[in-house]
Design a protein around this nucleic acid. Sequence first.
DNA 1: CGCTTACTTGAGTCTGGTCAAACGGGGTGG
DNA 2: CCACCCCGTTTGACCAGACTCAAGTAAGCG
Lengths: 251, 251
Amino acid sequence: MTRAKEAKPERVSCEACPLRSMSHFRDFDARELGFISRFKTGELSLDPGATLFLEGANSAHLFTILSGWAYRFKILEDGRRQILNYALPGDLLGLQGSLLGEMQHSVEALTPMKVCVFERARLKELWETYGSLAHDLTWIAAREERILDEHLLSIGRRTALERAAYLLAFLSARLETLKGVVGSTRVLPITQTHVADTLGLSLVHTNKTLRKLSNSGLIRWRDRGCEILEADGLREVAGWKESLPGRRPFL
Amino acid sequence: MTRAKEAKPERVSCEACPLRSMSHFRDFDARELGFISRFKTGELSLDPGATLFLEGANSAHLFTILSGWAYRFKILEDGRRQILNYALPGDLLGLQGSLLGEMQHSVEALTPMKVCVFERARLKELWETYGSLAHDLTWIAAREERILDEHLLSIGRRTALERAAYLLAFLSARLETLKGVVGSTRVLPITQTHVADTLGLSLVHTNKTLRKLSNSGLIRWRDRGCEILEADGLREVAGWKESLPGRRPFL
DNA sequence: CGCTTACTTGAGTCTGGTCAAACGGGGTGG
DNA sequence: CCACCCCGTTTGACCAGACTCAAGTAAGCG
């Protein structure tokens, strides 16, 4: 378990938040912005592999990702691991724990990350006084639920090839919405082990499945990542129609 | 697709709501109760098999279950079906659609049901003016997310036998919290087809798996339902520790 | 009484799992 | 500088859990 780096002295002010300026995210009005600024207590930089939340822990914080990737997962006693979802810039982490008590899943950094730190205790004020943000919070939770629904369908009823194509198409679509904030929108920083643990497949079978997608020219596997060559082709293999919501809120 | 019955003229007033009196649910104060009473626009009775929400539709309503069971599910074009979760008395249905637009899953009644009907449009007032209820709404969404997380772990990484045991233990635990509102807390009103579509298994294999649990004396399959004989035994087979949150909010 | 729905059971097949081994690149300590 | 090791990827051989096909039973209903 890697330690988090010390927060750097200089911090991004919420007014100048790089996410705010993106057309993909809904903007705040002055009053909301004031609250968010007070709500934010700092920033944190994390190395790949660092733990943001540990299953069973009771964290006092919430995070919004400024840059980098993370993933949420659960593990069974004998080590079997299931990755639940990936988190990208603009995503909120730790809401479940804030509302329901202790975390029942872990969260780990996949790449170097920067996150905003919020104080769990201040959430009360948000619900009491900032109705529009309370709405946003529920919206965010509902969105995660919808993603999990689709993922459940995938693991439960799609074949290995469909599953793999769906996952890559999904991540590619998410990345696409972040054009400008992330470097490349075509390379997913995941290993085949991550893919396997997301799809509920063995590593060996995952490798063979991904090979089929490579051979079809839809992706190219490289160093420690997956390059998306034809997102449309992936979507077709997966039998995927729906798109992700357009403009969305964040905190 | 069965039609919903006409709402009966007599309706349960929120003041006398049978769910409120249960120790399992958090109670409202007078102000909240006033809002909920205005928020509720009627009641609906549904036959088994009736559709509450249809994937792709844009419903103007939200429901809270007063009695009976429903289930949420998605289907692929070729008919493969995945059941996402079950909904019992006190559960809220349709929140996803209210926030994100059209429904991306369907909901169907499993037994005869009674539901409270709420107007989607009035939610705005809830966020703006009733902070405690806004909190509850987020709480409810976070709880569903947590359930889906666990379910995802189950389908992705547990064996068929573990999965089956987990599902039955989970449903049994949920029923247990509703002692008093439901008739028996030991009989789940589901068919093996439902179990199969929840676990991501074929019907035949599900049958053989459930047989093992029967032969171990943990359950007894009957008519169109599953009788739980030893919930602890099921939990053990599933390797399940966590319990569901105690007192919880509802609308 | 015939039809439908739910549950059973057996036989054969196949998708996906396990085991084993090897390769290549990057880091590290001798 | 090089040997070694670790991690991520790849491949082949074999195995098994889960699927499909098929058929049969039992209960409920018009």
